[in-house]
């Protein structure tokens, strides 16, 4: 065999071995690659299915969102209408506010006028109150003066009555003295008794208000009656307690509504509250 033939045989054998190895490797890698491709295709198919599902869900969600969007658009239009209406009302209210502010300014001016007027009225009222107070004080003074004058008139009236009574008593005594003088002139006798002592009114009733003794030891009695009750000095009165006679006393000092007398005779101790009656009265 020629050497070239041997050489070619060796080369051919080597190429055959190499070809076999390449074929095996190529076949195995191609199978692996095909399997991978199949796996990827399956995954892709699943992904496509999932994508379709997700897409369907997304379509449904989109449809719902469109519905919600439509509703929101409607709400937005409604709100826009409300906003427009509110803006119109706001404009109207601003106009009304302006008018009210203007009227308020007028009212404030009137209020100030009224305030000034009230202040003037208050001042006048205070002046009138002062005048009324002065007038009332004067009226009270006049009334007091009138009361004093009335009391003075009553006192003078009482004194007048007492004077008249005394005058009448003196006239009676004068008449009695004239009778007695006539009797004496005719040779008769006259009984000289207690003359000139005035008599208390028969209807008089009083109350003992106090019992004291003077420096000389005389028992002094105060009663609640005076010239207003037609009492006079030197009048004789009795002090009684119930049906008992207590004492007799003679008036020494007589005022308008009270008097003081000296006890002449006494049966019991004189006490405040004992009744005072005329001396000639049967008790």
């Amino acid at each position: 065999m020629h050497i070239l033939t041997k050489f070619f045989v060796i080369i051919a054998a080597m190429l055959s071995v190499l070809l076999a190895g390449l074929s095996i490797a190529y076949t195995s890698n191609a199978d692996a690659l095909r399997q991978n491709i199949e796996t990827e295709r399956a995954k892709a198919q699943m992904a496509m299915t999932e994508a379709d599902t997700v897409n369907a869900a997304a379509v449904e969600i989109r449809r719902q969102l469109n519905t919600v969007l439509a509703a929101s658009e409607e709400d937005k239009r409604e709100l826009q209408r409300n906003v427009d209406q509110l803006n119109a009302e706001k404009t109207q209210l601003a106009s009304d506010l302006k008018k009210l502010e203007l009227s308020s300014q007028g009212h404030d001016a009137r209020i100030e006028e009224f305030t000034a007027l009230v202040a003037a009225f208050l001042e006048q009222d205070s002046l009138r109150s002062g005048e009324n107070k002065t007038l009332r004080e004067k009226e009270i003074a006049y009334l007091r003066k009138e009361i004093d004058l009335g009391e003075r008139i009553n006192e003078l009236g009482s004194q007048l009555e007492v004077s008249q009574e005394t005058n009448r008593t003196l006239q009676e005594q004068l008449a009695d003295m004239r009778d007695r003088l006539g009797t004496l002139q005719n040779g008769g006798r006259v009984d000289v008794g207690a003359l000139g002592a005035p008599r208390a009114p028969d209807h008089f009733r009083g109350v003992v208000t106090g019992v004291t003794r003077d420096a000389a030891g005389k028992l002094l009695v105060s009663i609640d009656a005076g010239t207003n009750d037609r009492l006079a000095e030197r009048m004789k009165l009795n002090i009684v307690r119930g049906s008992s006679w207590v004492a007799s006393f003679t008036l020494e000092n007589v005022n308008l509504n009270d008097a003081v007398g000296v006890v002449d005779l006494s049966n019991l101790d004189v006490q405040s509250g004992d009744e005072v009656v005329p001396a000639e009265l049967d008790y």
Binding site: G21, L22, A25, S28, N29, A32, L33, Q35, N36
Partner: peptide, 9 residues
């Protein structure tokens, strides 16, 4: 002449 890893082509 190497083979692919089936799990990692």
């Amino acid at each position: 002449l190497n083979l692919q890893d089936p799990k990692r082509i």
